[in-house]
Nucleic acid binder design. Structure first.
Lengths: 254, 254
DNA sequence: CGTGACGTTGAAGAAGGTCAACCAATGTGG
DNA sequence: CCACATTGGTTGACCTTCTTCAACGTCACG
């Protein structure tokens, strides 16, 4: 049980970075029940159109949200890293509009919808915080549309790497930033709307220009300035360091 | 004032198609204050990064949400038609992460955020309904990523036309469906991540195959079956005809 | 009857896709 | 400890889709 609580802390921290919650409300989140389970790589654990009765909190690993086109090609529409609740939106929209797959071996904390709904009912401010979280995800999605629709391969890959780096490690405004990324080049291709072959060539080009290295699941960004320039990356949409006075609070405690 | 109320009715109807609201809650939405103003075509009325203090309900015309890349090329990330509140998300995320432009001469009802916040505070179920609405928009966005990332030009345009047709006219499962679409081929290009020239050729190909005609702002779908097949269009993500028992209600009246 | 916005057309070129092979690292059973 | 299979990454040759550029058509409107 304290294990569960520990996992929920990451999720709570993310909420608190953008919303204000009282001690009671914070406790209500930490008290959410759930059971953890390992999901092996490449396994779908939520299917398209399914009625979802549990939210999936990523404790460890990487999860992808995706759809397939008729030819069976896959488009990843979101990456979820530890601390993300992969399908919070199912609280208000229980029918899954996309599938979820573990991209690497992952640990998922399954939280009953009923418990989340009860928490929200007793503490409307939690609804507000979660809603705000959903809207940041929507802003990310919106940037993905821009990325895929109006940037060439090099910029797309650079932008994606910048986004993931920022989400993984806060504000990485330093040189030689390294982090672990449990993804293959195929996953990057499915996220950027490119071919694995072309992602490979693009990554090599970025490597040769001394901007970033991605080898054996380790990403090293050698030159953040240039990489974010190439990827046209502006982190404000991630609302990471949102100022306290902007974390407005609409809903009162019941 | 009754004018304002009339315009809000469209928005309320959209909420009611997916959520349950009591008579009092419905009235609170109809009582929202606001002032209508005309915006001429191609005018930005919300800028990127701006702090938004009014929500924009589209009363008439078409509004586009968009971002630019460095080269100044535009990517439209959403179309808003009458009855849509173009930036509801600003209720919880007041800093605009995308700009808004009138794509045709439009009438906008400006509703103060404070009024929406007050309504939400007094009637948490309104928050739930609006949140659900936001999540449908996110589902649409997610489909755009798939469309742009993993479909060829013909399918992209077909899918977009199917989506707009469904949103404009409910469930259009009939032949020779006609509706007005205040967009140019350039707008379709900016939405699909293509070139205006290529959209033109694609539209002509669709026309020659007898699937759809788009001339002088009139779209006529001659063969819905084939068009939605070409566009791989499955309307479930729009959650239009969501069953009453799925419009669950989490938040009680205060 | 000019002017501007939109749509249409053709020719040439570039970005990225496809296919097929090969390499390197890791893991597994004998 | 080695033979072998598997997974992920790399390479090259060729081809397709879409872009680019630049021109022209056409309709509405003042």
């Amino acid at each position: 049980m304290s294990e569960t609580r520990h996992n929920l802390q990451g999720f709570l921290d993310k909420l608190l970075s953008r919303s204000i919650l009282s001690a009671k409300e914070q406790q209500a989140i930490l008290d959410l029940p759930g059971y953890a389970a390992q999901v092996s790589a490449n396994r779908d654990f939520v299917r398209l159109g399914e009625m979802v009765d549990h939210a999936c909190l990523v404790v460890d690993g990487t999860v992808g949200q995706f759809c397939n086109n008729r030819k069976g090609e896959r488009q990843i529409t979101a990456f979820h890293i530890p601390g993300d609740m992969a399908n919070v939106h199912s609280v208000v929209l229980p029918t899954a509009t996309a599938a979820l797959q573990a991209l690497s071996t992952s640990t998922i904390l399954w939280i009953p919808q009923t418990a989340i709904q009860a928490a929200i009912r007793h503490h409307p401010a939690i609804a507000e915080a979660v809603w705000r979280d959903c809207m940041v995800d929507a802003a990310i999605l919106s940037q993905w549309v821009v990325n895929i629709g109006r940037r060439d391969a090099t910029s797309r890959v650079a932008h994606l790497l910048c986004e993931i780096a920022t989400r993984c490690s806060g504000t990485p405004n330093k040189h030689d930033l390294t982090f672990e990324l449990c993804l293959t080049q195929v996953h990057l291709a499915d996220a950027t709307g490119l071919t694995p072959v072309h992602v490979n060539r693009t990554l090599m080009a970025l490597r040769e220009r001394g901007l970033v290295t991605f080898r054996s699941r380790q990403v090293t960004i050698h030159d953040w300035e240039k990489l974010s320039m190439v990827g046209e990356f502006d982190p404000t949409y991630l609302q990471a360091g949102i100022k306290p006075d902007e974390r407005q609070r609409i809903l009162r405690a019941a």
